[in-house]
């Protein structure tokens, strides 16, 4: 397929996933912080901005840190490329650029999602019924993903779409773990029930976790689950495995591309890791490494598959100078 099309599909997948993950985290943060004292709430919102690597950008333009300003920043702010509405817009633009490749159903589900956000009174939603809005975003994103799976041929185009969303999700889950567990690895050894539920919910993982670990909600268990569960579709390991599977199909047979090597090494590492050892060591450094590898893999995918002409071709005209 065309390199550019592959790139658009890849980013469609990434942006839809980003919008969904952001909505998830906003939802849980918002409801987790209801009734908390102002200082606690402020701390909670700043944590969320850190997870999303948007803390500095937010601080540059905002003084007040509360539910309203942060939610607004993360949902509608057009200057924030990570905000939900701009993400959906970019997902739509990317899909529109490959309109002839995505199924009509998939296009309509993305386009209708975008149109729905356009006609909604988002300010009112954020004020009065954020739960409904976040639920809507999550459901629409799931609908997009589901429609893609059900209506697109599972060919290279679909693989790039999936690859994009898997790499995005792997990174988001790493970020979530990295920031959420900061206070507890700095001395406290008991993970608060509330906090753990919070993290699991952000990853839509609480039900699946309880089934896997009905008895003990320990720090170790929660980290292990989100990092290494081989079956839970939002765990880092699961995302890397899926990305690897798709990449293997995209590569020429018998060839191990650089992106595949990076992902495969990291996947193997996670597969055989011991969470106790990780916690005894520097878990944050480890999560950073994982994120770096995911980013590196995305860059290598771009180099291998998406390379097209530079933005401009320079004109030169030779002048007679006699």
């Amino acid at each position: 397929m065309l390199s550019r099309h592959a790139e658009h599909l890849f980013w469609t997948g990434r942006y839809v996933e980003r919008a969904a993950d952001t909505a998830r985290m906003l939802d849980v943060t918002y409801h987790g912080l209801l009734g908390e004292p102002v200082a606690e709430a402020r701390r909670g919102w700043l944590d969320l901005l850190d997870v999303l690597h948007l803390g500095r950008q937010f601080a540059d333009t905002h003084q007040l840190v509360d539910a309203r300003t942060v939610s607004n920043f993360l949902v509608v702010d057009p200057t924030n490329p990570g905000a939900i509405v701009p993400c959906v817009h970019k997902a739509r633009e990317n899909a529109r650029s490959v309109r002839e490749l995505v199924s009509t159903e998939l296009w309509e589900s993305i386009n209708n999602f975008w149109l729905e956000l356009q006609v909604r009174d988002l300010a009112r939603d954020l004020d009065q019924q954020p739960y409904e809005l976040y639920g809507l975003v999550r459901r629409r994103c799931q609908e997009v993903a589901g429609t893609a799976t059900e209506t697109m041929p599972h060919d290279d185009g679909w693989r790039f779409l999936l690859l994009g969303s898997m790499l995005e999700r792997a990174e988001m889950t790493c970020r979530l773990l990295n920031v959420r567990f900061a206070p507890f690895t700095e001395g406290e050894d008991e993970l608060g029930f509330h906090q753990a539920v919070h993290v699991l919910k952000s990853a839509s993982a609480s039900e699946a976790f309880r089934r896997a670990h009905p008895a003990a909600m320990t720090l170790e268990n929660v980290i292990e689950f989100l990092l290494m569960s081989p079956t839970f579709p939002r765990s880092v390991l699961f995302c890397l495995q899926s990305a690897e599977t798709e990449l293997l199909q995209l590569d020429a047979p018998g060839r191990l591309s650089r992106a595949l090597r990076v992902l495969g090494r990291r996947r193997a590492d996670l597969e055989f890791a011991d969470v106790g050892e990780l916690l005894a060591g520097d878990i944050h450094a480890f999560l950073d490494e994982v994120q770096n590898d995911v980013r590196r893999a995305a860059e290598l995918v771009a180099v291998q598959f998406f390379r097209h002409a530079e933005e401009f071709a320079v004109f030169h005209s030779l002048e007679t100078i006699a």
């Binding site: 401009f312 071709a313 320079v314 030169h316 005209s317 030779l318 002048e319 100078i321």
Partner: peptide
């Protein structure tokens, strides 16, 4: 005028700072 018979014209992809010797 010149544009109809310029000795060499063309494009390339890359940085603009080429030196030219004729």
């Amino acid at each position: 005028d010149y544009d109809d018979v310029s000795p060499l014209r063309g494009t390339y992809s890359g940085p603009r700072n080429a030196t030219l010797e004729v």
